[in-house]
Amino acid sequence: MIVRIMGEGQLTLADSHVVELNKLDDELLAEMESGDGTGFRSTLQALLEKVRELGSPLPDDSLEPSELILPSSDATLEEVRDMLGDGGLFPG
């Protein structure tokens, strides 16, 4: 799966990592629903760090279509809320 972090670039991420990332995604969704801005910020940072850790960066000149687009690390709760699908940022 090719994932784009807005403002940073693209990474290739094995589908097998989606289950692990879904845990953080579920946490982020719960914090957004409750309006927990501090928890949201912390969990968003943890989610992006985990994607960076597990993923392999694509070259900057690569123009692959992204299967998933994640917000930047400085995105607001409202901006991320607008990006969310029914089940969060990650499928499944």
Rank of each mutant, 00 (worst) to 15 (best):
V3T: 02
R4M: 12
R4L: 09
I5T: 03
M6A: 15
M6H: 12
E8L: 08
G9Q: 09
Q10D: 13
Q10C: 13
L11S: 03
T12G: 13
T12I: 09
L13F: 07
L13V: 11
L13K: 10
D15G: 14
V18K: 15
V18S: 05
V19M: 11
L24H: 05
L24G: 07
D25A: 04
D25C: 06
D25T: 00
D26Y: 02
D26R: 14
D26M: 10
E27D: 13
L28W: 03
L28R: 09
L28C: 08
L29S: 07
A30H: 09
E31V: 00
E31N: 14
G35S: 07
D36L: 02
D36Q: 07
G37A: 12
T38L: 14
S42T: 12
T43S: 11
L44Y: 05
Q45G: 03
Q45A: 11
Q45V: 03
L47A: 05
L47N: 04
L48H: 06
K50R: 14
K50E: 13
K50L: 14
V51D: 06
E53I: 00
L54D: 05
G55V: 02
G55C: 05
S56A: 11
P57S: 10
L58T: 01
L58C: 13
S62P: 00
S62C: 14
L63A: 13
E64V: 12
S66Y: 01
S66K: 01
S66H: 03
E67I: 01
E67T: 08
L68E: 04
L68K: 09
I69C: 10
L70S: 02
L70Y: 05
L70E: 00
P71V: 01
P71K: 10
S72G: 14
S72P: 04
S73V: 09
S73F: 03
D74S: 11
A75D: 00
L77E: 10
L77H: 11
E78R: 10
E78W: 02
V80Q: 00
V80P: 00
V80R: 04
R81H: 09
M83W: 04
M83D: 06
M83A: 05
M83R: 14
G85L: 08
G85N: 10
G88K: 09
G88Q: 09
G88Y: 02
F90P: 00
F90M: 10
P91F: 11
P91D: 12
P91Y: 15
